[in-house]
Design a protein around this nucleic acid. Structure first.
Lengths: 171, 171
DNA sequence: TCCCAATGTTTTAGGCTTATAATAACTCGG
DNA sequence: CCGAGTTATTATAAGCCTAAAACATTGGGA
């Protein structure tokens, strides 16, 4: 922790502080890692199961919610949990219904709402994909020890809280 | 903004190892952080500069390459550096040309190739955005100390190498 | 009862992204 | 010099994603 880091940079030609540079370096590396891993998962889902990451995520979310909500989730609740817009979900669910993996039925008590749920075929498809998905990720993290994974997890937790704090400073 | 934080559930404890769970936890948290930060940057670029992240990235890449390649980059070279497909770049450059931020001219020595370069307006637009962009990122990393940022950077470097090793195991 | 604000969903317009196919221009061996 | 293979780019088709507007239904007062 040098003086310059605390007190600000000497008046060089550079406007960018060391502080800022170290942040940008870390961010760009994190972005690169995420994109590599996500890209591999997308490619593997396509190659092995002929599907896409958003579809897998949707099926996984429905399955995870099945204890909580055995009759399924509404479009709005699903879009909240998947952190995507309602409009996006409309098309995504359309395609999964067409493939027979999810069912969408009007909710009797509120005819505006649609209950979306996994079909038997959807559950089977998900069960086939889940172990492979876990294996792909595990394989890509193989170079990190258990301790390092824990350290990464802890740091990312701190980063997540930091981003939330930053969000509140704006709002 | 996909890949919901759902997969950490282990409905079958006997199959999913602790090892695998710790990997999935770390991965989902990293994905969450990246999506949060990237989403904020996208929103801020749109709100403050009425532009998008891919366009900003393209301008930044051209600027970063200007020492290396003062006449600009070809479409293929640009797509390699931005890690997107050629077809993607065609539309992206189209829009930036329409906005007057980049120029695209046929390369005299090889009439198949297009040299893409920043216009004066493009350079000005980039210069206006760059400090704000750095500030947004810095703000979101504020909760991490210098040492923690370094630690994160180091761990991510190891992760990146790990993913590359995993890629070679497949190929 | 009827209106209207709130809520749930879809539509629309625009942009990003990929894989694959098509087109254009270059290079080089014969 | 000419055709085959290679390389650079664009076109196409499909899907993902968002914001904003439109549409549909509900529920609670006046």
């Amino acid at each position: 922790m040098t003086h310059s880091a605390v007190l600000g940079e000497a008046p060089n030609e550079t406007v960018t502080s060391n502080n800022e540079r170290s942040v940008l370096r870390a961010w760009l590396r994190m972005l690169a890692c995420t994109n590599i891993i996500e890209g591999r998962v997308r490619g593997a889902l396509r190659e092995h199961f002929n599907t896409t990451l958003p579809r897998f995520d949707l099926l996984a979310q429905l399955d995870a919610s099945s204890a909580d909500a055995p009759r399924g989730l509404t479009m709005s609740e699903l879009s909240r949990r998947l952190m995507v817009t309602n409009g996006n979900l409309t098309g995504l669910v359309d395609r999964l219904v067409r493939e027979g993996l999810v069912a969408r039925v009007v909710s009797p008590p509120d005819r505006r709402a649609q209950m979306v749920s996994l079909t038997t075929a959807g559950k089977s498809a998900l069960d086939a994909m889940t172990p492979a998905h876990a294996e792909w990720i595990t394989d890509m993290f193989e170079g990190l020890s258990d301790a390092e994974r824990g350290q990464l997890y802890r740091l990312l937790g701190k980063l997540k809280r930091s981003t939330q704090a930053a969000g509140e400073r704006i709002s």
